[in-house]
């Protein structure tokens, strides 16, 4: 059940990452005197992949941390 969420989420992140890799180069890749178009696309893709991995790791660790909590929240009674 919970593992299913991990899988779904991972697939979502991967899909978003791939989508961003496809979409971003169209708006961020420029040819300037310091970078060719190809290099610009490569740079975009590397950045997006690293960013996706970071964001995914952040999400999945928070999710896993809450999967099997060892303590319960103690809230004030109003």
């Amino acid at each position: 059940m919970a593992v299913g969420v991990l899988l779904t989420g991972t697939i979502v992140f991967a899909a978003l990452g791939v989508a961003a890799c496809v979409i971003f180069p169209f708006c961020t890749a420029y040819e300037t005197e310091n970078i060719t178009k190809g290099e610009s696309i490569q740079l975009t893709i590397v950045c997006i992949s690293v960013a996706t991995v970071c964001l995914w790791g952040f999400w999945i660790s928070m999710y896993m941390h809450q999967m099997n909590p060892m303590i319960l929240p103690e809230r004030a009674v109003h």
Partner: peptide, 12 residues
């Protein structure tokens, strides 16, 4: 303070 319970019908 009161310790809340896990809601069996919900997911994390």
């Amino acid at each position: 303070f009161v310790e809340w319970q896990i809601d069996p019908s919900s997911k994390p």
